[in-house]
Structure formats: structure tokens, C-alpha cells
């Protein structure tokens, strides 16, 4: 492909090729602190291709392709090319990763122990992890938590934080460094999106796992409430939050079983970021 970049995030290495320079240049800059070894053997190839014969030039439009693909993925405008690249990498992980149990969750670490937060899109798990990452925790990832199949530890996958809509303002108020933010992408399929480069320490320690200590199911926009979640329910909800639970077979079952029987789980409803941080502080005090 005309433009390309090799990039390592946590344990995975991606080779990203593009028909256009712009998405690669943006990735190169935003991922400047990550390993970019052009001579590495990549786990996955991601391709950003013109969606049709003329779509390189005329109303340029990106089709996300690669080693793993979705047959009917909708093409995206080139101005959202950075998002397309991110989606392409996520897709490789979601469909292809087998070396850990992959859970759709954010995670942060303190004192060698990890807090894992999972929930549907809009639950606030991503923003909460980003906020904690600015307040004394190590940010481990806002999208995927990788559960070790052998020892149960959580491995980081600290890709760029994908801030959507209201979360953009929240993090701009939190982070006093404009150079850590990517370009504003308006009217993407997921709304407005800005990427945030994780803190330096998070990137430097991206191969360092942590033992899980607490699992939360946050839910934004509800009156403050904290409820225990039984092991059976936590197990079932995590099977739904995992993209490779079925593919891993018995190893996946064992890893998830170990996780839910060893880690306390709570559902947390909250009305504001500040309230959520309060609750997390209190809960962490009990388990740590």
C-alpha cells in the first residue's frame, strides 16, 4: 500500500496500510511514543482502501479491510480516516485475538492491582478510566482488558482514548495539554470524536500486567446506587462483553471462572463524573 506504519499497542503489533497519507500521518504523530518498528513482524494487517474505483480522489471514502474483516462494514469519509484506522485495529483484536480472554472493558491500576470497568457504550467506562488515569492511577486501556489465560492477570491495551461527545469537554477540562489531543472529527457514525494520548507512564508500562482487584459495572445517568453483582450474573455479563470467549473454549471458561470467583463485582449507578470518582475511591478503600 502507498502509505504504511507498523505500530505496537500492548501485546499486539499492527501493520496499517492506507491509500492516503493523512490517516497514517495522524497515527504516526498521535502514537509517537509507542514502538513503531517498520521491521517488526505484525500480528495483523489493517488496510484503509478506497471504497470504490474512483473513491481515492472523488468524495474520498475509506473501506476498512485487513486480515479480519466484516463483510458489510459501511465505508467512512476520509476526514474520519483516523477513526477508520482505530476501528480497523479494534476489529483485528475483536475477531482475531486468542492469547488472552478479551473483555470489552476499561482498566486502571494502582499499587499493582487493577480496577476493571465494563458496560455498554455510554456507560462512561471509557471516560472514567481516562479521568482516573489523570488522577494517580495508571491508565491501562479504555476499550479492551486482556485477561491472562494462565495466571488471571489483566494485560493493558492502552490505545488512544476515544472521547465521544460530552466526554471531549470533560477531558479538555481535565488535561491541560493541547498536544495530547487529536483532531476533532465531527459527525462520525458515533457522534463527535477526539482522541486523547494516554499519559506517558501508561504507554511506557504497556507490557506490565496487574492482578485484578475489583470489577465494576458503571451506568451513567442514574441516581447514585451501588449493588453487589453475584458471580453467576457477572460471569454471564462478561461472556457477552467478551469477543473471544466462545473461540477460546475451555481456556476461556477457566479464565472467566477464575476472574469472577476471585474478584468482587459491583454495579454502580452515578449522575456525574465527580460522584463516580467518589464512589470508586470509597470502594477501592474497601478492597485495597
Amino acid at each position: 500500500m502507498r502509505h504504511s506504519l507498523t505500530l505496537a499497542i500492548g501485546p499486539a503489533t499492527f501493520r496499517i496500510g492506507s491509500a492516503w497519507e493523512q490517516p497514517i500521518a495522524q497515527l504516526r504523530a498521535l502514537y509517537a511514543a509507542y514502538p513503531q518498528d517498520a521491521a517488526a513482524i505484525a500480528d495483523y494487517a489493517v488496510r484503509l482502501e478506497p471504497a470504490g474505483p474512483l473513491r481515492r480522489w472523488w468524495r474520498p471514502s475509506v473501506r476498512i479491510a485487513g486480515d479480519h474483516m466484516l463483510p458489510d462494514a459501511a465505508p467512512m469519509a476520509l476526514r474520519h480516516g483516523l477513526l477508520a484506522a482505530e476501528m480497523g485495529m479494534n476489529l483485528q483484536m475483536a475477531l482475531g485475538w486468542r492469547r488472552h480472554l478479551l473483555i470489552h472493558a476499561s482498566s486502571v491500576e494502582k499499587g499493582g492491582r487493577a480496577l476493571v470497568m465494563t458496560g455498554e457504550s455510554g456507560s462512561g467506562k471509557s471516560t472514567l478510566a481516562a479521568l482516573l488515569g489523570e488522577r494517580g492511577w495508571r491508565f491501562m486501556g479504555d476499550e479492551f482488558a486482556l485477561l491472562d489465560l494462565a495466571d488471571g492477570r489483566v494485560h493493558p491495551f492502552p490505545r488512544l482514548v476515544s472521547l465521544k461527545n460530552a466526554a471531549i469537554g470533560v477531558m479538555r477540562a481535565e488535561v491541560n495539554d493541547a498536544t495530547r489531543f487529536g483532531p476533532m472529527m465531527r459527525e462520525t457514525p458515533k457522534g463527535d470524536i477526539v482522541h486523547l494520548i494516554p499519559p506517558q507512564d501508561s504507554i511506557a508500562r504497556m507490557r506490565e500486567p496487574a492482578r485484578p482487584a475489583l470489577l465494576l459495572f458503571p451506568r451513567y445517568g442514574f441516581a447514585r446506587d451501588v449493588r453487589p453483582v453475584g458471580q453467576g450474573e457477572a460471569f454471564m455479563r462478561l461472556t457477552q462483553a467478551s469477543t473471544n470467549y466462545v473461540a477460546l473454549g475451555e481456556a476461556g471458561f477457566d479464565a472467566l471462572h477464575r476472574f469472577v470467583t476471585g474478584v468482587p463485582a459491583l454495579a454502580v449507578d452515578y449522575e456525574s463524573g465527580a460522584a463516580a470518582l467518589d464512589i470508586i475511591d470509597a470502594l477501592w478503600g474497601e478492597v485495597a
Partner: peptide
Amino acid sequence: VPDAVRAILADARRDAER
């Protein structure tokens, strides 16, 4: 084979078995 390749092939072997 190089370590990076070995890991990829091990994944593929497991997928094929499944």
C-alpha cells in the same frame, strides 16, 4: 520460526482445532 510468527501460528492451530 521467529517468536512473533510462532505466536501467530499457535493461534491459528488452536482455531483450526476448534
